[in-house]
């Protein structure tokens, strides 16, 4: 297992370097002179030259890239063009909010999705099964920001049960409910479809027939024998959900004024704040890589065959 972990960690390094290279290239091809962007439009030539030298912008591109990589290793993403606050500090503050939102969304999606999927499989071709699967397909097809608007209209404006936006420091746990439901809808729909098909496959296996033949109650057959095995593909999908949650966060946070990393990135786009944008993109990609790595490792733990591939 340790050899597998090391091998998998080593495989992730070139991917991460590739991510930094692509982000660096994007930054480099951005229109406009980065030194002027940092210094501001009114800066004189001397200031611009000083900043160019300070940031290493006067050096050849490969050198600039390695300087950039060196700074990244020290978690130095530079300072925001707009606020002059270190980018890592802004990201650190915002990351916590996104993590809270993503965690709640994840819990909601797993509870809702897996439960619906399992019931659908056990009661295959029932009205519940058909409705759950059509709702799941609609859930996959609906834009996250649009679901957010509907939730705001119903539970915020009409019923007045939940706040229209804002963060937990203002409204407590109530603030996270609507954004988490909006963000969790799509993964919930995927989980439901996946849990259903996986459960259907498992309950046709011989050991389930054996369990039934032994005279075990249906609930024992489902919960004790089938569920565990049916959940293995669901675990694999959990890694991919992180990508969905991070992407969805960009849109959900905009709708609910949630102070997370997604909103930071969107704001950075409109402020043309390239260091923040670059830092945000790299950190999100890094989280995505780590999540997939963790899923690969947990999968190897569940299924020993993978370690020996």
């Amino acid at each position: 297992m340790i050899r597998y972990i090391i091998r998998r960690l080593l495989q992730a390094i070139p991917v991460f370097i590739g991510v930094t290279l692509i982000t660096f290239i994007l930054f480099f091809i951005a229109p406009g002179d980065p030194a002027r962007l940092i210094a501001g439009q009114r800066a004189d030539a001397e200031t611009i030259a000083r900043i160019r030298a300070l940031w290493g912008l006067d050096k050849p591109l490969p050198v600039q890239y390695f300087l950039f990589l060196g700074r990244l290793l020290k978690l130095d993403f530079g300072r925001s063009f707009k606020t002059n606050i270190p980018v890592i500090q802004s990201i650190g503050e915002r990351l916590q909010a996104t993590a809270i939102l993503a965690l709640f969304a994840f819990i909601i999606s797993v509870l809702l999705g897996v439960t619906a999927g399992i019931i659908s499989a056990v009661k295959q071709y029932s009205i519940f099964d058909y409705s759950a699967m059509v709702i799941a397909l609609l859930g996959v097809s609906a834009p996250v920001y649009w679901i957010g608007i509907i939730l705001l209209l119903v539970f915020g404006f009409k019923l007045g049960w939940l706040p229209l936006g804002g963060y937990i420091t203002e409204y407590g746990i109530k603030a996270v409910i609507l954004p988490a439901i909006a963000l969790g809808t799509r993964p919930a729909a995927y989980f439901a479809r996946l849990a259903r098909s996986s459960m259907l496959e498992v309950i046709r296996q011989e050991y389930i027939i054996t369990a039934r033949a032994k005279g075990l109650s249906e609930s024992k057959v489902i919960f004790k024998h089938a569920l565990r095995n049916a959940l293995i593909p669901v675990v694999t999908y959990a890694g991919m959900v992180v990508g969905d949650l991070l992407t969805g966060a960009v849109l959900t946070e905009t709708i609910f004024a949630w102070p997370g990393i997604g909103r930071l990135v969107v704001q950075a786009i409109f402020d043309r704040d390239l260091p923040v944008l670059q830092g945000g993109v790299i950190v999100i990609a890094l989280i995505y890589i780590l999540a997939n790595l963790l899923v690969d490792l947990s999968y190897a733990l569940i299924d020993p065959r993978i370690r020996y591939e």
Partner: peptide, 23 residues
Amino acid sequence: RVVEILFAFPFLLFVIAVVSTLG
């Protein structure tokens, strides 16, 4: 390897990064 690197970016985020730097 390039595919693996591209998979490390959430799709929407990558497109946002390109569009916001290029216009």
